[in-house]
Design a binder for these strands. Structure first.
Lengths: 204, 204
DNA sequence: ATTTAATTTAACCAATTGGTTAACAAAAAT
DNA sequence: ATTTTTGTTAACCAATTGGTTAAATTAAAT
């Protein structure tokens, strides 16, 4: 253990607390005092380390999405077969979301709140480029490896099948009647089930 | 025209404004003053007609979901072929969401906020019962009309494919690059495309 | 016409919220 | 050792928020 104290730093405590509160309650619902309490420190420290609520929020937000973006971008333009990309996206995304099940809702929510600001914060200068993937899909259609399908619909389907279960978890758990463990198992299955489902639908 | 003035009633103006503001900003983000301004009336009227913010919110919330619930319940237990149910669900849900594209996010969001209270508000005494649909799916599997698939996964897939595009609209519009009209067209296509996609995947 | 009830308003209130400040303590640098 | 910087706190502040009230206006009932 090189540096055991690192994650009990005041700054780290603030970030942990802020992550928890912001993700649970969103930007508008979160209170600076809640975060301070959760971190077990004085509220003034929040402003000492991060100037304002906005800035603290932005830190958490970037952190939440920041991990995923580069991986998605890499995958999009990777030189891999279409089916492999589908399999990898599902596995990657679902694995990530299982570790942080509330991030998808948190992100989706804040993107909805201010779609403008989001683009900048998230992607900075270069937004993800789907053109290569789209072309790849069109190629597969042309080669008659898959049925004719609009690339947009296919991408939408893939994202839907991977992301929605985490957004709708409370509703799904309720309607279908799942406890925490069952949900986890279903999601574990889904890493394989989603690509299989998609491929079964489009493969010729 | 029996009663032309009905929708310019103060109460109606409040409801219209509240719907707009709550759906746009969520419970925590919405301000009573915003709603009053939007309705062009004095803030005190909000409390005169609806005792509190909570109560006004609940009115809007119930109204937002209330329309859908009975239709879903009816469909679940209807005496119709599985494929027909899938087709009808997709068409019904997507049509509804196209008319009120922000409701799905609004509802999902508030369900996440307090899943407990939601059940009561939403379903009252009798929550939706999936058992008939589940049995139906199992039957189709047994009869080898469809490939072996977990009913839970299938239901999750159907909901994902219908609901997610509206939750992720800003992200999708951004990533894929869609304007309002294109999005609308894609969703219109989807009423048929989703059932086709599912059925192609599971039909034997 | 006059009383009564329903609506609407402006002014006000207490509580909460994000944020600041000045004093104080602990480390680091000298 | 002592100055200086960094970290921390309690008290405070102005603005905002949901909510109230008493007076004024309008509509309904008598």
């Amino acid at each position: 253990m090189v540096d055991k104290k690192k994650d009990t730093t005041t700054e780290a405590k603030i970030l942990d607390a802020a992550r928890k509160v912001f993700i649970a309650k969103g930007m508008a619902g979160a209170r600076m005092q809640d975060i301070a309490d959760e971190a077990g420190i004085n509220k003034a420290m929040l402003h000492y380390y991060f100037r304002s609520k906005d800035q603290l929020f932005e830190t958490i937000f970037k952190e939440s999405v920041g991990n995923l973006i580069p991986r998605v971008k890499a995958l999009l333009n990777a030189d891999l077969p279409l089916f492999t990309k589908i399999e990898m996206f599902a596995d990657n995304y679902i694995s990530m979301a299982m570790q942080n099940p509330y991030i998808p809702m948190f992100v989706m929510n804040e993107v909805n709140r201010q779609p403008q600001a989001f683009i900048k914060k998230m992607f900075g200068n270069d937004p993800p480029d789907l053109s290569k993937l789209v072309e790849q899909i069109e190629q597969e259609v042309k080669k008659k490896n898959i049925v004719p399908i609009s690339p947009v619909q296919l991408v939408m389907n893939l994202m839907s099948l991977c992301v929605f279960p985490f957004l709708g978890k409370p509703i799904l758990s309720m309607v279908i009647g799942l406890d925490e463990l069952q949900f986890k198992n279903i999601m574990e299955q889904r890493k394989k089930a989603v690509p299989e489902f998609i491929i079964a639908s489009i493969k010729k």
